[in-house]
């Protein structure tokens, strides 16, 4: 089981060993937030509350165990996979790299239309199918590894394909 839903939680739990704060950071419901600014505020608020509830000398980690904030540069590139219907969508989803899933599910929710992943948006606008979106939105992507998230989404669409065929 991979540990830590986010890097902050992993560091606070394993390096700072502030158990309660670590648990709070782990369980933050990131899906609730529609922008990175909102997520940032939620983290800051949580840390400020922790500091006010725990006055007095603060822990300092040993040299070499600091948290290194890194800046990200995001590259996106086309792949050979293009879906025209449910079946080919499933085929593509089986073959793209997990970074593609990251872009279309995680990052997509943080850009317009906010809170909607690219897959749900595509099924809604092309097939007027919002059931796929409802199903996918019930998956909390932060509680799966990217590989198991892929399998989950494939299952959602396979089920939907069977329903659409029988309709």
């Amino acid at each position: 089981m991979p540990e830590g839903a986010n890097d902050f939680a992993y560091w606070v739990t394993n390096t700072v060993q502030a158990d309660r704060l670590g648990e709070e950071l782990t369980s933050i419901d990131i899906v609730r937030y529609n922008s990175l600014a909102d997520i940032r505020s939620a983290f800051v608020e949580m840390l400020e509350r922790h500091l006010s509830e725990n006055p007095g000398p603060q822990r300092t980690v040993a040299p070499g165990r600091e948290f290194h904030f890194m800046r990200a540069i995001r590259f996106s590139l086309p792949t050979d996979c293009a879906a025209a219907d449910y079946a080919s969508f499933i085929e593509c989803l089986k073959n793209v790299s997990v970074s593609s899933l990251y872009l279309h599910v995680f990052e997509a929710r943080l850009r317009p239309p906010y809170g909607v992943d690219d897959f749900s948006h595509w099924f809604k606008t092309n097939f007027d199918d919002d059931k796929v979106g409802r199903e996918i939105s019930r998956l909390d992507p932060y509680s799966y590894t990217l590989e198991s998230l892929r399998q989950r989404i494939i299952r959602v669409i396979e089920r939907r394909l069977a329903e659409v065929k029988n309709a």
Binding site: R71, A72, I73, R74, L77
Partner: peptide
Amino acid sequence: LLLALYLESGKRDFIHL
């Protein structure tokens, strides 16, 4: 290669190829 592209592209944070 991505680093080379970043430097060639004018050092933008979001790059679509």
